[in-house]
Amino acid sequence: MTDALLTVEDLTISFPSDNGPVPVVKSISLTVAREIVAVVGESGSGKSLTGRAIMGLLPCRAHVRASRMLFEGIDLQTLGPAGWNGLRGSGMGLILQDPKFSLNPAHRVGRQVEEALLLHTKLSARERKQRALDMLARVGLPDPERVYASYPAALSGGMGQRVMIAAMLINRPMLIIADEPTSALDRGLQDQVLTLLRSLTEEFGMGLLLISHDLQQVSRYADRVIVMRQGEIVERLPASELAQAQTAYTRGLWAARPSFATYGTRLPVFEDSGRPS
């Protein structure tokens, strides 16, 4: 648990504008070991950009600077295009929000699940297919053969997200970045998918960076929680200690969660001062 897979120090992301570069992520530091770290924040807090920057997937006009960005001893800031392509899909993977858009509509599921094996291993086509079928079964898809041969259009949202997880985990990466992996699913499916992600993370001994806007939900699945706001980290604490959060912002978020205790009453309105107008 203590050996960090990923170490990020003083990460700053800025975008050029007419009035000079505008920083959207300001000097944040975080580490991820073989654990689940949740990054929580409202939209625009820079949490998704942080995830993309770790994968080297920000648009070229974004300017990324950090004093240290290490993944398993590899300095991410010195990687060229070929180095990144070698690392993505074998060392780390990215799970996006909505499988309706994040799966390629023109490729059959099997081909998409196998792709990381095709790109990073020398397995034969038959071995790849066997691994893909195993993985589809492992993420809980009934009748993997049929899912393997169908187009994403034939899948429901929950099935699509399981396919996405299978595609990203098939090559056993060390780190998975899940960017709002359940926001496009309905509530019942959200818990199924998060439970699956947690059990696979433990089974494969991976690190999981879980990016979400739902503090209450991720707190049930994460080991540690990092709260971001306007590009800065305002709080970091073990998920079990959320109730004793130090900053007013986190306490406010936590108090605004719906629960059985607050059922039928009005939730406190979240007062947010200091928001740039």
Binding site: M55, G89, H120
Partner: peptide
């Protein structure tokens, strides 16, 4: 599109 991002995340070249 997002499916392109997915492909990039698997290590696909441009």
């Amino acid at each position: 599109q997002e499916y392109v991002l997915t492909a990039r995340a698997k290590g696909a070249s441009l």
